[in-house]
Design a protein around this nucleic acid. Structure first.
Lengths: 122, 122
DNA sequence: ATAAACCCTGACATTAGTGTCAGAGTCAAG
DNA sequence: CTTGACTCTGACACTAATGTCAGGGTTTAT
């Protein structure tokens, strides 16, 4: 199939499919005229890529284990666990940061509301 | 004082101070030679800017109430509460997203560890 | 008066994936 | 053979604050 069909079957934009290829995540044959040609396994592969992207992994990280997970169960791929753990650490750091900011913000909102008590015309 | 001194007194880089000015958050007089000249109140102002930035507000949002909070108590500035609330909503959305991803990731890690039980050579 | 330290503007880079456009070639159906 | 739909590459845009560099002027201390 050509790239338009693959795009429709996977939900990935044509632009994204070309980008995945550029990042080494997706291979394509070329027709005589230079059109990309995909076989059916590409559909699964793209869905897999998009799933890992949705977990917050980067294309570079995904490229480290994609070939393995396309052939085996995830648990078989040793490369994946350290990446998961690192991503967890990043997530925890980010969530912690945002949660701290949130608490700060909540406190300021409360403080403003309290200060405006009694002088609130509405 | 000139920009280098303001930078040292506030912890903001010279680049950032120029950026704040470009965004309309900071004003400066100019000497005959074109050097920026600041008075002492600039120190407080820059610290205030940096504080709001650390709360996750953008320079554009800050510009909406900075003049007011430099002159009054925060609670007096009506512009600030809706911005705080919107930022809270954004934070909650972002935290929720990351938390969901984190749960997904944690589940996958657990699943991998379970699948590798008993066949784990280490 | 000269060197070192300071300041100026303008510009490009950074992140990471995606949107979008231009200009050109290809394919399919009529 | 023509038209419309498809595809190609390459490039710029985006977010937002900051780093950094180049090329040039200024101030200060010696």
């Amino acid at each position: 199939m050509r790239i338009g069909e693959l795009s429709q079957l996977t939900g990935a934009s044509i632009r994204s499919l070309r980008y995945y290829e550029q990042q080494g995540l997706l291979k394509s044959d070329r027709s005589d005229s230079g059109y990309r040609e995909y076989n059916l396994t590409a559909v699964e592969q793209v869905k897999t890529i998009r799933f890992y992207l949705s977990l917050g992994l980067t294309t570079e990280e995904i490229s480290g284990f994609l070939t393995c997970v396309m052939k085996n169960k995830e648990a078989f791929c040793q490369e994946i666990l350290p990446i998961y753990r690192q991503k967890m650490a990043e997530l925890d750091a980010q969530i912690g940061l945002l949660t701290g900011i949130r608490a700060n913000l909540a406190e300021r909102i409360t403080s403003i509301l309290e200060e405006n008590e009694g002088s609130d015309k509405s």
